[in-house]
Amino acid sequence: MSKIINDVKLDYKDVLIRPRRSTIRSRADIDLFAEMKFRNSKRIYEGIPIMAANMESTGTFEMAKALSKHGLFTAVHKYNTLEEWKAFAASSPECLHNVSVSVGISPSDLKLLSDIIDAIPEISIISLDIANAHIQVFLESIKQVRSAYPNHTIVAGDVAIPEMVEEIILTGADIVKVGIGGGSVCTTRLKTGVGYPQLSAVLECAHAAHGVGGHIIADGGCINVGDLAKAFGAGADFVMIGGMLAGHDQSGGKIIKRDGKLYSQFYGLCSRAAMEKHYGGVAEYRAAEGKEVEIPYKGDVEATILDMLGGLRSACTYVGAKRLQELYRQTTFIRCTQQSNPVFESAPSK
């Protein structure tokens, strides 16, 4: 017999952060930089814990250069060659502490990982990334990579349930990516019926990770800066974003001109577009679980970065958190039926 969990599970759109008394005088007083020590690598991270997703139209070397200037992180997508990595390392060595090498778990992926780490020893973070990390073979891959790179920080995912978060950390990862089906160009929930509302996933998985000395990334589901604040307020140590960074000069998406307007191509890693580009098409045994869309061209990413950081500082002032890492302790969520006044939503903005 099928089981039904009757507890209500929530997404970012279902809540707001309750304001509270604050002694902070100015948003300028907020410290967004975080410091974390990782359980297994024993390394120390310092930076603003926002990550560009490891997608071809967000996780680019150009994006890494732009984000690193502000202390943000980029999970560089897995389709770069060894030579491209070497060129990036030679031209932008200052960025290497703010990027990770993203790979899958196939033998060819792990060979590329080995080649990159051998060539660029300054890289200290490895991202093992598959769509469904709830499988035993993924745990075996974590053990293999941890054995080969005992002093590297390992990011692993994606999952959405706390028991898998615990197991992945205890197996050797330091940070677990949390999120199934919440991305703006992900169709997993529609194709499979599988998923977990992102706010509840973050709340539950953060508690599990912190209980064993690990960390999590809230991956997917953020459509505005307020959602980033909610993710941090729910206990995320890092927040990974894709769609919010797509469409910029540094995003890597193909620019298209139509009817006098510019658009940028954006597609999911499991979309038909991605599989046709890199694997010759969608294999007969699977379905494409991502969309390919054209979004309005947004120009340089700098303005978007500053808007995100400004919004997070403002969120901290509303709840009296002097540092971003205090936001979790200062956050109480309230259920809501409407987040904003929709009267001018269809009107063009400037």
Rank of each mutant, 00 (worst) to 15 (best):
Y328P: 08
S141A: 15
T81I: 09
N54H: 05
I4C: 06
E83F: 00
F88M: 01
V15T: 05
S349P: 02
P348N: 12
G214D: 02
F33M: 11
E204K: 15
R146Q: 04
A273V: 09
K42T: 14
M51I: 15
R146N: 08
I169P: 04
R25A: 13
Y328C: 11
T192L: 04
G214L: 06
G213Q: 01
V165G: 06
S22E: 12
L245F: 10
S26E: 14
T192D: 07
Y318A: 10
S108K: 07
D7Q: 11
N132K: 15
K254F: 02
S340D: 14
L312N: 01
Q198L: 04
Y45I: 09
V293C: 08
A201Q: 02
V225D: 14
H215K: 15
A201C: 11
S271I: 01
E345L: 11
T74S: 07
E204P: 04
S264F: 03
A236E: 01
L190G: 03
A218E: 00
Q136K: 15
A274C: 12
F266K: 02
A287R: 15
D219A: 12
G268R: 01
M164L: 11
I135F: 07
H215G: 00
D14R: 07
A173D: 05
A287E: 15
A287M: 08
A28L: 11
K298N: 15
K69D: 08
S100R: 01
S22P: 04
A288P: 07
S346I: 09
I125M: 08
G182A: 12
P150C: 09
M63E: 04
E46H: 13
L309E: 13
D7V: 04
K298S: 13
I168K: 07
L199V: 03
G181W: 03
V282F: 01
A321C: 11
C186Q: 05
V155S: 10
K13W: 09
D109S: 15
M164Q: 10
I175T: 01
M275I: 03
R39M: 13
G290H: 05
M51Q: 00
V343R: 14
D174F: 06
S349W: 12
I48W: 00
E84M: 10
I175S: 01
Y318E: 08
G280K: 10
Q250Y: 08
Y279C: 09
A303Q: 13
K86C: 06
P107A: 10
V145S: 10
A89F: 03
G242H: 13
K111H: 13
L190A: 11
G226V: 07
D227M: 12
V101M: 02
A75D: 06
